[in-house]
Amino acid sequence: MHVEFGNSFKKFYKTGNFWCDLYPTTKLILCFTVAMSTIVMNNWIYGFSVCLFYFIFAFFTGHGKQFTKTFLILFVIIGLFLVVIRQVGMRTGNVTPMFEIFGWIWYRESFITSLDVSSYMLGFAGGILLFFDTTPMRDLMYAFEHMGVSHVTSFIMLSSMQNIIDLRKTSVAILESQKSRGIETDGNILVRSKAFFPTISPLILGAFSSTEEKSIAMDARAFSVKRKHTFLRELKPMSQIEKILCLLFSLALISLTVWKIAAALIK
């Protein structure tokens, strides 16, 4: 059993899912080009079709639940809110009434404009969400390090994520402690603002004080050694098919952009 465990590190890490096992930069390029294409197209039919595709794809990769949860929040904040904002804020160009809600007339022109804007915002956001939902940050950093990015960048990204988790726990503990010693956290905005300082200050000072020890500990683990790093978990390198796919998607985005600019100039 121990041998089996040891041998598992000799193979490339795999999840068994076609999408999740793609090289992180392949996923990044594919998601980013599709996300950017919604901005370039600026068309609600295209934008929302891409969003629907994201949903189906997220379920296919086994991350549907996680994706839906975050995407729905964005859909309400960006999508629905923007539609209402445009109906209230857009006054010029509205000529075709659509329907009426308690005397408030909704116009087709501002409705279509809001759909266009919210579709590319959600199209862009969805692509980035899908990428981060299906790609662990350590895998992305692994790919970047293989491209020549310094291991310091990986440290900053991964350590920040860990620090967020640690400091979140500490902040709750500090807030509870401050409450127990009588600091008001309820009341008007001024009272609540005052409670902010005794919570954030010890949090930052405590985090800062641990930095020196961390610096020594990292040096003891050869953080500053300038030589090629090894990885416990290796990912399968980018295949030829992945390279061709990335090239095709990038070319498609460039062509789409040129076509849109040319069409705008001709107009």
Binding site: V152, F155, I156, S159, S160, Q162, N163, I164, D166, L167, R168, S171, V172, L175, T185, R192, S193, A195, F196, T199, I200, L203, I204, A207, F208, T211, K214, S215, M218
Partner: peptide, 21 residues
Amino acid sequence: LFLIPIGIAVNFIGGQIAILL
């Protein structure tokens, strides 16, 4: 360099405390 991740985390937690309060 070691203060950078802390600064990033503080940016997040500042917003979180604002929500808590």
